[in-house]
Design a protein around this nucleic acid. Sequence first.
RNA 1: GGCGGUGUAGCUCAGUCGGUUAGAGCGACGGCUUCAUAAGCCGUAUGUCGGGGGUUCGAAUCCCUUCACCGCUACCA
Length: 575
Amino acid sequence: MVRYLVTSALPYANGPIHFGHVTGAYLPADVYVRTLRMLGEEVLFVCGTDEHGVAITIGAEQEGKPYPQYVARWREVIKRTFDAFGIEFDIWSGTSICPEHRAASQGFFRRLDDRGWLLKKTSAQLYCTHDRMFLADRYILGTCTKCGYEQARGDECPRCGTWLDPLEMARKTRAVCKVCGNVPEQRDTLHWHLDLPALRDKGFGAWFQGRTWKPNVSGFIGNMLADLQPRPITRDMTWGVPVPEDRAAGETGKVLYVWFDAPIGYVSFTQQWAREQGRPGDWERWWKSPDTRLVHFIGKDNIPFHCLVFPSMLYGMDEGWTMPWQVPANEFYNLQGGKFSTSQNWTVPVDEFFAKYDAEAARFHLIASMPEAADSEWRWEEFQSTNNALLADAIGNLATRVLKFIEKNAEGRIPSLDPGHAEELDRCILGQCGEFGDPALHVLEFRFRRAAEELIRCAHVGNKFVNDLAPWTLRKTDPARAASVLNTACQWLAWMARWMAPFMPQKAQALWEMLGQTTRVAGERWPGLPVAGSWRVLPAGQRLGTVTGLFPKIEDATIQAEVAALEARRAAVAS
RNA sequence: GGCGGUGUAGCUCAGUCGGUUAGAGCGACGGCUUCAUAAGCCGUAUGUCGGGGGUUCGAAUCCCUUCACCGCUACCA
C-alpha cells in the first residue's frame, strides 16, 4: 500500500517568510496533501524551521539575543503566517528543538563515515579573531582583484561579476570581516567532506538518471553530476549539531554544516511525530519503505540540496532509505515587477494583509499564479481580478443566485427532483463539461494552475446551466421542472464545494454548510468527475443553512492604495 | 565566465516527440437576460509565437546564432 511523505523546505529561522515562499513550497504542498487525503491516501506532511548556521548566529548577536530565543521568535512568526494561510502540517518542529534531531543527524554522520563516504581534508580559510569565527566567502569584503571595485564580496564581485578567490583577495588587498570590519587572518582548519563523486559512481548517478524530473531539475543536476567535488559538511562554530565525539578524533568546535543537518530534519521531525503519536517505531514505515512516495516541495534555489546532496546521503546510508519520488521545484515568485526584498521593503506585510483580505482568496490567487514553469509575480491588480471576477462573480455569485432563489421561492429547502427530468437535466449540465479535467489529477501531476482553472470552469458550467434553464421563468409555467432544475443546481454546488476543499478549505466548508450539510467537507471522498445518474448527493427537502456571500469584492481604490503603499515603503528606505 | 529556466494577443499563461485558418482566462467592445455580490449567458476584435539564419513539402514546435529577463554557480541559506 502506497503512502505519501510530503515535505516543504524548512524555512530558515532568521526572518519572516513572504508570499514567494508560500506559493513556492508550502501552499502547493498543502493543496497536494489535502487532495491526497480526500482521495483516501495515507499522507504525512512534515515541516519545521531550519535553525542552525552562521547567518542565525550573526542575526542573533546583532539583536543581542541568545540563539534559541532568536530562533524561537522567528519560528513563531513563520508559523503564524502558515496558520493564517490555513497551511496545516502534521508535525511542525525545528532543528534546534526537535528532541530527535541531534541523534538522527549524528547517526547519519556515523553511518556515512562507516560506509566510507566521508573524507577529512585540511584547508586554509580566513578567520576573524574578533568574532572568533571562520568567515564564509560572502562575509569577506575587499577589493576586486580584477576591476578594483572596493566593496567586492569574497566569492564574487557584484560590479564585474568575476568569481573571486577570497584567499587571493586577502593576500593582495585589504579584505575585512563584513561583520566587524577587522582584518581576518589565514588559518588551517580540518573538515569532513561528503564524497559526492564516489556516491555518484557507486550508484547514485544511475539512480538519478533513471528517474524523470522537472526540466529545471534534470538539466541542472545532470550538469552538476558531471563535475562533482566532495562537499564539506562541517563548520567551525558552536551553534549546531556537534560532530559526534567518537568521530571527532580530538577535533573540537566542529558542528555539522547546516545544509547537512537541515534535511535530516525531515527524518527527525517524523520521528518526533511518531513518538508523539505513541508509536515511536512508526517512522521507519515512512522512511525505510519502497512503498513511500517522498515528495519534496521546494523553490528552485533548493534543487542541489534536495536532488543531489540529501538523496546522496540517503543513498549512501545503504539501509533501504526512502529516496525522493518527486521534487516539484517551483521557480521564483516576485512582487509587482520586483523581487520580494525585506531590506528594500518591497514586501506585502503579512499580518496587515490578513487583517484586510481573505486568506482563502489569497490562497487561490497564489495557486492560480504559481511559478510552475517560469518566474511569476504577485500583482495587486491581478489579485483583485481573481477575487472579483473569478471568486466573487463566478463561484460566489453562482451560490447566492441559486440559494437565494430557493430561499425566496422554495421555502429554503432543496427542491425535489422529478425522476422524469433527471436524465435530461444530467445531459444538460454534464454535456457542458466538454474537456473538463479532474482537478485532483492535475494536482497529482503538480499542475496546480491547471487545477485552479478547472475549478473556475466548474463554476462557469453551473452558471450556464442556470442561465439556459432559467428557473425564474419555468417557475411560472412548469413548477415541477423548475424544482428539478434547482435541485440539479444545488447538486452542482455540492460538487463544486468538494472540488474547492483542497484549495479553499474554509470557503468550501461554508458552501457545504449553506447547502444544509453538517459534516466536514474535507472528510468527504473526492468526487472526481460527475457521472450521469449517480452524481447527485443532496437529499430533496434538506433545509439550507444560512446563505451569505462567499467572497466580498475588493474595490479599485483599495488596490490603488496598496500599490501606493508598496511604492511608499520602498521610497522610504531609499531616501 | 559556466550551467539552467523563460521570452506566444493589452495582462496572465496553455500549446513544442513539426502538420489543417496559433488557443484559454482576464480586460475591451456588441447583443441577450434579470434569479443573484450591477452578477450571468452569447458573440466580436486583437498576435511579423523576442530578432536573424538554416533543415523541411510544411516550424511557435528541430538545428545554429543573437538579444532580453530570471536563477544557480556548491564553506549565506
